[in-house]
Amino acid sequence: MTDHGTHLDQMRAQAPLVHNITNYVAMNIMANVLLAVGASPAMVHARQEVAEFAGLAQALTVNIGTADPDWVEAMALAAQVMTQAGRPWVLDPVGVGATRFRQDACARLVDLGPSIIRGNASEILALAGTAAAGRGADAADSVAAAQEAALALARRSGAVVAVSGPEDFVTDGQQSFHVANGHPMMPRITALGCSLNGVIAAFAVAAPALPATASALAYYGLAGEQAGARSEGPGGFQPAFLDALYGMTASALDAGAKVRAA
């Protein structure tokens, strides 16, 4: 796969409006990330308007990190609009294995047909119905341990499934890729993982879900590598990361992407 830079340019040319129903912790950094990559973010979660607003957006992300029953209803309404319109939407099943409420909410959302499901290894294992060792939103399982679960979940749901970790794994159930871009500082920044969902959604507006997801993961991880090279800790990493996202060129992405077939 060598079209990562093309996918970046196509996304920026469209400057898609991405509707995000995400957690309170992620809203600010996610909006800044989407602005830096060249997309347009919106954080809209009121049940009274989500379906109408989803009709205006090119993509949707759903993150259950701080969900409550009203938010889950809103997520379902927005997801239905996207699925019916054939527009991409991304589900992030944060901490799905922690409580029955999260399990039930995610089962309902998976049934609504997400284009892409992205989570850590423990979340993907739990969502696939396999025993996982996660602690809240933190993974306690390896990406390798979740690969078979990711394949099964992709085949069952019809979604592209991305397992985030030191080396990401992404699959549509038939074709799979490893993405090795990233930096150890990235997990130390609050909601940086949540913000990735918006980037994946933006890429999926202009490209099929599997290559869009692989390219978005490589882009995000490469920006992390660049930020890590010029910062000394998490305080300096965040602004450097936004600058790296903003300044990334198609040629730099093609040269730096570490994507290989699984």
Rank of each mutant, 00 (worst) to 15 (best):
A107Q: 14
G55I: 13
V179E: 06
A191Y: 10
I117R: 01
H7D: 13
T190P: 00
T249F: 12
A42F: 05
Q103H: 12
D68N: 14
A54V: 08
D9K: 11
M1L: 15
A74C: 04
G119W: 00
F203L: 06
R118A: 03
L109Y: 03
P114M: 11
L222D: 01
F101S: 08
A149C: 07
G173I: 02
S251V: 13
Y24F: 15
V110C: 01
E148N: 13
E232A: 15
D70P: 12
V199W: 05
I117T: 05
S40A: 13
T99D: 05
F241T: 03
L127A: 06
W89D: 13
L151A: 09
L17T: 08
A131G: 02
G119K: 01
G233R: 07
T6I: 09
M11V: 07
G134R: 00
V143F: 00
A78F: 09
S40E: 08
L127E: 03
A191D: 09
G95L: 10
A204S: 14
V179D: 02
A13Y: 01
A204H: 11
V143N: 00
A121N: 03
V33L: 12
D111N: 12
E123L: 02
H4R: 07
H45Q: 15
L210Q: 08
M82N: 10
D92Y: 09
T99H: 10
V259H: 01
E167Y: 06
A150I: 01
N63A: 09
Y246V: 02
A85R: 15
Q48E: 15
W71P: 05
D254K: 02
V62F: 09
A250M: 04
L217I: 01
L17A: 15
I117K: 09
V163S: 01
A74Y: 04
A59E: 07
V199I: 14
D168C: 10
A162H: 06
Y246S: 14
F241S: 02
L77Q: 14
R47T: 13
M30H: 09
F177K: 06
A15H: 10
S157K: 01
P114A: 11
A67Y: 09
T213F: 11
D168G: 06
T83H: 14
P184F: 06
I116M: 08
A98E: 08
V110D: 04
L125R: 03
A206D: 10
V50I: 05
S164F: 08
A262K: 14
A57W: 07
P211M: 04
H178R: 15
V199F: 03
L34D: 05
Y246R: 15
S164D: 11
G224R: 04
A131D: 09
A146H: 02
A57N: 10
R230A: 10
A132T: 00
M75G: 14
A212M: 08
A132W: 00
H7R: 15
M185V: 13
A13P: 06
A51E: 10
R155W: 00
N32R: 08
